[in-house]
Amino acid sequence: MLEVIGIVFIGIGLVFDLFGCLGLVRLPDVYNRLQAATKCVTFGTCSLLFGVFLILGFSPGGIKALLCIVFLLLTSPVSAHALARSSHKAGVKLWEGSVCDDYQN
């Protein structure tokens, strides 16, 4: 039973991974790509790791999967934030359909 729920979680994670990478291909500029990629790929991989935890149970592998979820949730938004900030400072323009840019100093 737990194995079936775990496989469902793995399936959800794979679908979100695929959508995140599609967003990486389709969206027009760096910031939009960061939005799609960071959210979808992080959540997808977290869901995949949670499915792995449900299948393996409270064994060394399962506990490591839970720890890996914590590390991912802590590190991935920080790296997205650093990339967005540094590419704005490096002078990457927003997409021409953008509405406003309050960050220009």
Binding site: D17, V30, G44, V52, G61, C68, L72
Partner: peptide, 23 residues
């Protein structure tokens, strides 16, 4: 920066590979 973003995403996908291999 586009290339750096996609390299970052590849890194996260590799974690997924490792998880699937471990089950």
């Amino acid at each position: 920066s586009d290339r750096i973003v996609s390299i970052d995403m590849l890194g996260i996908l590799i974690i997924g590979f490792c998880a699937v291999l471990s089950i």
